[in-house]
Design a protein around this nucleic acid. Structure first.
Lengths: 369, 369
DNA sequence: TTGTACGCGTTATCAA
DNA sequence: TTGATAACGCGTACAA
């Protein structure tokens, strides 16, 4: 028999359910021992009742559950995870919650992870340089795995491997590594957009790229640049900035200044930048879009679909991507004992959204002059 | 001496730091015992070294830290929280991550909570009816407190009190209860917007309210309705819908149908609805805004500020609200042992954003006919 | 300042 | 099916 302090006052159970007493007197919590005592069984019996698929007789199960309900007993997840080595928590690391794209992704991820019986421990950061501090926290909290939507150095990835912590990288392509990841091919996306626009006869391009430290931004830009080069078109005029509205406008002004003229088409690092560019063109500079200039972005965030914009863009299938990330991570967690996790990459194709901010048909010969 | 299994192979420390061995052989984790053994001290000495402000000599501290670094030891948060009764996790419950307003709030909250040395355990839901399932999870995970941005029933709030779990309600006014909360006075906001518009001479109002099960939506609508009534204006035509773009457009068509004419001004449940309403008016119905009709919303989300909209709206000071929520919760957590938490309400005033979608000056007499 | 011994609340093992 | 008992990894009185 375990030496326990004074047991929880069981009279609480007898009082009307309407107006329950506080859960625990003083500082004691309700434990499985209290339930066991009230139900007249052993503590391990109580434990078994809360483990799905354990062998308990119907009779004891009923008595235990009744006692548990009376005391408002709920198993302590910390104690459980200590011995099972499963916290049922998944770390989600996201760099730019302020961006419009990530909330949609986070909402999906959260739903999917919850559906799999796990919880999300959320880590956000202003600068991607805060990653190290966040990783230290992740180790402490004994999460079962992590989904990271931020840049990771090889050393950081190595840490995950040494700790045998399942990791899925979201929307960052870490070429050469064997990390599991879910992503849209951003380089390909850049190429695709360039092809579509070039196919309509645009020749003088501007590119307003996202921040240099973002791999997504870099790949989109490179894809577009390379494709334009392949097609024998003149090198585009390139500006860059943050993934935000102001950068879109600023970038457009820069490009026009550099070119000494309005470009035929502008490819922007994401939708918010494209919207900034579009608004600047229409409302500040009086440029007809798509009549005089075409504008396109990436992501198909919700506002891109609003009537005032109806943006030409590339949709990332975030719903499916979130689903894949959750699936990949859970399967890695399940399989962990069996074998090391084979770095699987799930690549999604971006979907072209025609919109109305880009001229996509070649001009008739009479106008093409 | 504790009967332990074979201790961690300490040879790992000797190998080059460049190419570290896996953290743990087989299935053992690195524990404070391993560090103690390597450093030649007791386990409790190790424990003290990781507790800020404990009494340890410089010499042992140095040796312990060296050993810890060599083994990549990190304290186990689950074990710690088991004994300290502090998990350093805060539950954040959010209903509509898809809405534009909440990501901004969540990003702020997350930053503020992290700054206070705690982590966010995130719970999201599609329907506010999922709250009960989420609460059950919250009890399990031994969080130190919760910030809830969703409707709670009195019974649910009672549960928090019985469990003595610090709770801050975000942006939901639970009148009559003594729950700590951080909020913007939505009723007042509704009144303010009505006053401003009425002051400019608008007489025939439309209101496109948010969903009936949202207290925020209801209060905004009631505030506007009451104020218009006080001013002796005709009762507004009211439509309602979800807090989304489509509902804004749909609501406007409903109001015009009901009125048989275009209203002077439309007050929308939030900015996204207002933007939907605005786009419908301008692009589908060809209504001049603000020339013929004024449109206003609530929240001042980022897109409301874009040039295509420049919406007249009321800003909620989310930065300060998030800060207040984090402060309130942490002070409740600190004070928990001392006394029961006095339900404090922090009320923030909405700030009027003039924008350009509402005519705010009275018409000259010549035109007022 | 340091070490010993115990407890936090649970699951896992094994014998009955 | 059930119960006794040993972990899980840590913090903390208490004694030295």
């Amino acid at each position: 028999m375990r030496k326990t302090k004074t047991p929880i006052d069981c009279a609480a159970t007898d009082s009307a359910a309407q107006d329950k007493a506080p859960i625990a007197r003083a500082d004691r919590r309700v434990t499985s021992y209290d339930v066991a005592m009230l139900a007249g069984v052993s503590q391990s019996a109580v434990s078994r009742c809360f483990k799905p698929g354990a062998s308990v007789s119907k009779a004891t199960y009923a008595r235990v559950m009744k006692a548990a309900a009376g005391l408002d007993y709920i198993p302590n997840a910390a104690a459980r995870s200590l011995i099972t080595r499963r916290s049922n928590m998944v770390a989600v690391v996201i760099s730019q919650l302020a961006n419009l794209y990530y909330p949609e992704a986070l909402a999906e991820l959260s739903q999917q992870i919850a559906r799999r019986g796990k919880r999300v421990l959320l880590f956000t950061m202003q600068n991607e340089s805060d990653v190290d501090a966040i990783l230290a926290d992740i180790w402490q909290y004994q999460v079962d795995g992590a989904i990271v939507a931020a840049a990771l150095t090889p050393a950081q990835i190595g840490e995950f491997e040494r700790r045998r912590l399942p990791l899925v990288v979201f929307n960052r392509n870490l070429r050469g590594t064997s990390v599991s990841s879910v992503l849209c091919d951003q380089y390909d996306a850049g190429r695709l957009l360039a092809s579509k626009l070039a196919g309509a006869g645009h020749r003088r391009f501007g590119i307003i790229a996202g921040p240099a430290d973002s791999p997504v931004a870099t790949e989109r830009r490179n894809g577009a640049v390379d494709r334009l080069h392949e097609l024998g078109l003149p090198a585009p005029s390139i500006a860059s900035g943050q993934f935000d509205y102001a950068s879109g406008a600023h970038g457009l002004r820069q490009i026009i200044a550099a070119l000494g003229d309005v470009p035929d088409a502008v490819i922007c690092g994401n939708d918010v930048m494209a919207i900034g560019c579009l608004d600047c063109a229409r409302h500040e500079l009086g440029i007809d879009v798509p009549g005089r200039m075409s504008v396109a972005g990436f992501d198909a965030v919700e506002p891109s679909n609003w009537l005032s914009y109806n943006l030409t863009t590339l949709r990332q299938p975030i719903h499916n991507m979130a689903l894949a990330a959750a699936d990949l991570l859970t399967s890695m967690i399940e399989a962990q004992e069996l074998h090391g996790c084979a770095g699987e990459k799930r690549l999604f194709a971006p979907q072209f959204v025609e919109g109305a901010t880009a001229r996509l048909a070649a001009l008739p010969a009479s106008l093409a002059a």
